[in-house]
Design a protein around this nucleic acid. Structure first.
Lengths: 238, 238
DNA sequence: TTTCTCCAAAAGTGATCACATTTTTGAAAA
DNA sequence: TTTTCAAAAATGTGATCACTTTTGGAGAAA
């Protein structure tokens, strides 16, 4: 067996046994980061089971912290615990998709508006840099990097709000639609992608709340629009 | 001291066999129900530590299922994991309170509107019965029963929507403000409580979506209004 | 009486184990 | 080749253990 190296494993597993030099809850945090990032970049396939011992071996930890992390993510509806105990990425359904879209449209503009007064010119510059990278990824068809950067763009804005309530809710939403998004990009590619990031950046620079709300709404509609047509027009299985 | 009987423990500790599905994740579900219900009715005090072994002993299970449940609830922001690992009910802050209020006003009317077409006349009758009990509790000052019934009233409506996305989000919100609410009722009593439940029931009977949205919004504002003034006018600690 | 020190109790974390159930597989039979 | 069925491997669950850190209190010193 010998602990197969995996894309999930960020670094060498030197953390095992000898020296728990890291602080409290290090293993749990490591697993949490790995799985969250894996979900957001679409490295987990909807419908595919996520096994406890498998993940544990892949990350070089015992099944214990994995159990806790999987429970956490199940509580956020990022993972689904089936009646037999198996854990998997939930399959997307039209109903779920419509609900996620509705929730995003309600919450994200609100949080962006909350963040606007706390966004500095430096934040705007950072966002520009991220957006440039995003354009690169769209052209080159690098879906995984695109998803990571698109998440980074939105949450760079949202995190500025220092929100303790809305931000976790939106976090949960992204974890729910990201794995599905990945399968769609895998099928239709990324070249047709459009976003309203530049509108959003301009609105931030101009401190224009209405324009920022509008850009976020348009961005969500654009991004989820092609996904919606994809899933709602007789698609088979992932 | 062996397994002290507690308010958390719903029945005899010998839960084996009686409940359906008592084999798969039975202990976890038992703990989850106990803690959730405890949070919603305010039996946990904000700022008071919730110890793993303590809860486990109280519920007659090993610390293992408790760990998983506490992680779940922490992921829903119903509990807070402090840097030293201790778990407690988060203290309410003005900022958090405003955010919860905002999120409730955005999401709950939407979910009620989604539920409206699926609410039957029988549901309306059930809601009337619950509301009558609520009136009793307000008069008699039974804050704990009031909180349980008020939750039952709202979620009887919301659950009809069969929502998979919005409902868990709202669930998380209620877990966040309920323990704080309880401390407020303990201080100001329940007699001054007003709700718009009768308006909501009428709107459901008349299939009037706008009226239902309005009743939910008014109910939230009424309920959280007195709380808001309470917390925002120089209050010290819970 | 107050404050500081030190030690014992308690708590969280991660690993391992035992057990029941589920899933997979592989061989035999149709 | 397809179907059936039993053995084997794998999985989740709950309990227990060992270890480190934190908490709390008893007791001594000022």
């Amino acid at each position: 067996m010998a602990v197969r190296r995996s894309a999930l494993q960020s670094g060498p597993s030197k953390n095992s046994g000898t020296r728990p030099g890291s602080s409290r809850g290090a293993a749990r945090e490591q697993v949490d980061d790995a799985v969250r990032s894996g979900l957001l970049t679409g490295r987990f396939i909807p419908g595919k089971a996520v096994t406890l011992r498998g993940l544990a071996a892949e990350l070089g930890v015992s099944p214990m912290p994995v159990r806790e992390v999987l429970q956490r993510l199940a509580a956020e509806n990022a993972l689904e615990v089936k009646p037999n105990g198996r854990v998997q990425v939930p399959d997307m359904t039209p109903g779920r998709f419509q609900e996620v879209l509705k929730a995003r449209l309600l919450l994200e503009p609100e949080l962006a508006a909350l963040a606007l007064p706390r966004l500095s010119p430096k934040d705007a510059d950072d966002l520009k840099a991220i957006d440039d990278d995003i354009d690169q990824c769209i052209l080159s068809g690098d879906a995984e990097s695109y998803m990571r950067l698109n998440h980074a763009f939105h949450f760079r804005i949202y995190r500025a709000s220092a929100s303790e309530v809305l931000l976790p809710l939106i976090d949960s939403l992204w974890l729910q639609f990201a794995p599905f998004m990945r399968t769609v990009y895998g099928r239709v590619g990324t070249v047709s992608l459009e976003d309203r990031h530049k509108e959003a950046i301009r609105a931030i620079e101009e401190r224009n709340e209405a324009a920022l709300r509008g850009a976020i709404i348009a961005d969500i509609n654009d991004g989820m629009g092609i996904l919606g047509t994809e899933i709602l027009t007789g698609k088979g299985k992932a």
